[in-house]
Amino acid sequence: MSEQVLRLGLPKGSLQESTFQLFKRAGFNISVRSRSYFPSIDDPEIEVILMRAQEIPRYVNEGVLDAGLSGLDWILENEADVVEVADLTYSKQTTNPIRVIIAVAENSNIHSVQDLQGKRIATELVRLTRNYLAKNNVTANVEFSYGATEVKVPHLVDAIVDITETGSSLRANKLKIIDTILVSTTRLHANKQAWENPFIREKLKNLAVLLEGALRADSKVGLKMNLPKGKLEDVLAILPAMKHPTVAQLINSDWLAVEVVLPEKQVRDLIPALRNAGAQDIIEYPLNKVIP
């Protein structure tokens, strides 16, 4: 067993549960006691440290961590000069990217970034916001927000720059989006010096393959079925597939076995159609990873 260890920072807080679930589907079991920042993982070559996603890129950049998972928004906010290993499109509630947006009150007369000239803006993403304003030749008072940013409009500030996944919190606080600064996804990123270490580079590349495979399997299932040879063309005509279905001859029989991977949302309507086309013994099963 290698004596080297990959020091990996994982996000604590809102992204923690979805990250742990992703690792589980990738084949890694992570367990953590309440209030602990050092979970156990069933891989002796990985040491996991939990911390806020906002801080992970800074510690990766400084070499305290070899690698970490955090959003592109926080990598840019920390101005971290790191190696991007993998783009992992998942977030707290969905498998969609999040957006960094500018929002104002629904009845505000602020309609564009130019209208923010001289205004007060609250955000956790201070550098990102100032850089965005500078690119648009706008000068505004950007202040750091310690939380509950949505409720500060319009009584405390004129606008906010915040992260949204579904937009539900913005709607609940009667806010409207006037611009999107950034579309951000979770990135597996590495310290540049650590990346030159063959052990760490290989470990991260393998980890990326497994995590990407787990994400690729999201919302997909496998279908198996048997059918008479004479029904093959009818079944193939209605059967979608990632590439081509697998077709095998059953031993000592005129029947075939067909297997395919497809989006789960298609299965409800597809199974009755397959049954009507002559397929039998249809089995649907979940997937953990899909590796192309």
Rank of each mutant, 00 (worst) to 15 (best):
R7M: 02
L8V: 08
G9P: 04
L15K: 03
Q16T: 00
Q16C: 01
Q16W: 07
S18D: 03
N29R: 11
S31Q: 13
S31A: 09
Y37F: 14
D43L: 01
D43V: 00
I56L: 07
P57R: 05
P57H: 06
Y59G: 04
V60A: 00
E62C: 02
E62F: 01
L65T: 09
D66M: 05
S70I: 09
S70G: 11
D73C: 14
D73N: 15
L76N: 02
E77I: 09
E77K: 08
N78Q: 13
E79G: 07
E84M: 10
E84T: 13
L88M: 02
T89A: 12
K92V: 13
K92F: 06
I98Q: 12
R99A: 13
I101P: 11
A103C: 07
H111Y: 10
S112M: 05
V113K: 06
E124S: 14
L128E: 08
R130P: 04
L133D: 02
L133C: 00
N136R: 15
G147M: 02
D158L: 03
D158R: 04
V161C: 03
D162T: 14
I163H: 01
T164W: 06
T166A: 00
G167R: 04
S168P: 01
K176I: 14
D179I: 05
T180E: 15
T185F: 00
R187H: 14
R187G: 02
L188A: 03
W195L: 13
W195Y: 15
R201H: 15
L207C: 00
V209A: 08
E212P: 02
A214E: 01
A217C: 04
D218E: 13
D218H: 07
K220G: 01
K220M: 13
K224P: 00
N226L: 15
G230W: 08
K231F: 11
L232A: 10
A237G: 05
L239M: 07
P240C: 06
P240M: 05
P240N: 05
H244V: 14
L250K: 15
W255F: 13
W255H: 13
V258I: 15
V261F: 07
P263V: 05
Q266F: 13
D269A: 15
I271S: 09
I271N: 09
P272W: 13
D281E: 13
E284G: 05
Y285I: 06
L287A: 09
L287M: 14
K289M: 15
I291K: 04
